[in-house]
Design a protein around this nucleic acid. Sequence first.
DNA 1: GTAACGTGCAACTCGTCAGTTGCCTGAGTT
DNA 2: AACTCAGGCAACTGACGAGTTGCACGTTAC
Lengths: 95, 95
Amino acid sequence: MSDPLGLVFGALADPSRRQVIGYLSERGTATATELTGELPMTRQAVSKHLAALAGAGLVAAERRGRETRYRLTETGEEWDGRLDALRAHLERRHT
Amino acid sequence: MSDPLGLVFGALADPSRRQVIGYLSERGTATATELTGELPMTRQAVSKHLAALAGAGLVAAERRGRETRYRLTETGEEWDGRLDALRAHLERRHT
DNA sequence: GTAACGTGCAACTCGTCAGTTGCCTGAGTT
DNA sequence: AACTCAGGCAACTGACGAGTTGCACGTTAC
């Protein structure tokens, strides 16, 4: 779609995807099946979320043998750092 | 939905809405009908976008007589300031 | 070689969202 | 009072996104 900003904001708009970012930040790396244990949905759904995050450039996939490990990109790490600050910022502003 | 962060990112994910933020930043204030002249859509559509932005707390509505004037909130201005930087940031990273 | 595991792909349902049109209401105007 | 202009509300269409199920393919283990 050639709307990089839209892809990033669109990816971050979904709570499940922000959660995935949090998990990846804690563990450094994970596969879709591993993440499925943490989210109330099927592996396929998680996989689609990871694809969206990858499309936005927040996450990178690396296939190793029969499994695909995902990790945060530099951009993804930056956003993970901002998320808590933004959350607090919004709480403060609109309460 | 009580997902403030989701509302903000969701609002910013749409190019038309980011454009509205830009216009409001330039002119300070505008009505839905005025903005309709700048966007390839009907007044109703613009009005819905403004409602989304207002729901995310990026824009505030003030009714004055028979017209409703919209302006950026403090949060909205902050995001307007960040958008260009983010755009440039992404260009640099993924080209 | 065969069985099991991790993944990817395709088709489908369901809900939401962008955008439209049509109508109705309230605030100025003459 | 009659008219006009700006907005809001409701119903509808079309597209997209989230999530599911079923199946097929490559990789590791036995």
